[in-house]
């Protein structure tokens, strides 16, 4: 991975909608070079997706609940945790799955329409998996910051408009 590639990734991670010509200027490459680099990063699955960070609390008309579930599992010979992780992340309501160090093994985040729906998922789908030993479910109450983005940012530029 060269320096320019990392620079492009950092810029895109911060703003995936940046116009190509602006991005090209910023990293001092031609538009074609940047386009080629991005395509190649996509092909290598280094760039996986261009998503938006949305504050759903403000978007009226779509309610839902999010829960973080600490899952203890028994790893299987040969495949370790990967196998059980896959069985969990295949469910579409599961948004993230991380393998963790510490008191539990997998951190699973799921989204549902209601608490009941989430509870149903945990008791009927997650807990019933062979390797799952136990689960602890935490419901998310409010998002302050997600992926480096503050949800109620202070927009105001506090600097005086012209200074030496």
């Amino acid at each position: 991975m060269n320096e320019k590639e990392i620079e492009i990734l950092e810029i895109l991670e911060d703003n995936a909608r940046i116009p190509l010509d602006v991005l090209a200027d910023m990293v001092d490459l031609s538009e074609e070079e940047v386009e080629k680099t991005i395509t190649s990063l996509e092909e290598q699955n280094i760039i996986l997706n261009y998503s938006s960070v949305i504050n759903w609390d403000k978007a009226a008309g779509k309610d839902g609940v999010v829960a973080m579930i600490d899952v203890k599992v028994t790893p299987k010979r040969e495949v370790g945790f990967d196998d059980v992780a896959e069985r969990i992340y295949r469910f579409p309501e599961v948004k993230t799955v991380y393998l963790m160090s510490g008191a539990y093994d997998l951190s699973v985040q799921i989204e549902g329409k209601t608490m009941k729906e989430v509870a149903f998922f945990v008791s009927n789908k997650l807990s019933t998996l062979d390797s799952v030993l136990s689960t602890t479910t935490h419901f998310l109450l409010k998002k302050y910051k997600h992926d480096g983005v503050i949800f109620e940012p202070e927009q105001k530029d506090k600097r005086i408009v012209v200074s030496p």
Partner: peptide, 28 residues
């Protein structure tokens, strides 16, 4: 008086100004 002052006075009375006149970082 510094010539900067004049532009400060002009610009600070207007709305919707994009200022490229600031001599300090935009980071807090």
């Amino acid at each position: 008086p510094s010539g900067i002052r004049k532009f400060f006075d002009l610009a600070s009375q207007m709305e919707n100004v994009i200022s490229l006149g600031v001599g300090e970082p935009d980071f807090v």
